[in-house]
């Protein structure tokens, strides 16, 4: 077992524990936004798509890179935008000016 692998496993286990602790009691109105917010966070998979693009050297590699890129970008961009739209409903007065805050997020996956 290499030191890197051990470090990665330790990080994985400790992150699991943080994940168990970081959200305690959640009001049921926030269940769906919370699920969507967590869904957006695993959109970090787009980093993996970028990483395989850096070493792709065959037609099947290019194809998988394109597929992974498209799926991951939909996950991360859509995830954050739809979560933000849901959470806007919790702030009544500004809900009519919807586009402004989410505009800044759109470019992140590209």
């Amino acid at each position: 077992m290499t030191p890197t692998l051990f470090t990665d496993i330790a990080i994985f286990v400790l992150s699991l524990l943080v994940g168990f602790e970081v959200i305690s009691k959640i009001p049921s109105t926030l269940h769906t936004p919370m699920m969507s917010g967590a869904n957006a966070i695993h959109g970090v998979v787009v980093a993996g798509a970028i990483a395989i693009a850096a070493f792709a050297d065959s037609p099947i590699g290019y194809l998988l890179t394109g597929i992974a890129g498209a799926l991951a970008a939909a996950n991360v961009v859509g995830g954050y935008v739809v979560t933000d739209r849901m959470l806007q409903m919790f702030r009544k007065p500004v809900s009519t000016t919807a586009p402004a805050p989410s505009d800044t997020e759109q470019g992140e996956g590209r």
Binding site: A49, A53, T65, I67, A70, A74, G78, Q106
Partner: peptide
Amino acid sequence: LGWGALGLGLIAGGVFGAVRAR
């Protein structure tokens, strides 16, 4: 080619995600 495939994928997925979410 690899970067192009990634770029095309990211744009397609990102636009789809943003439009559907909005």
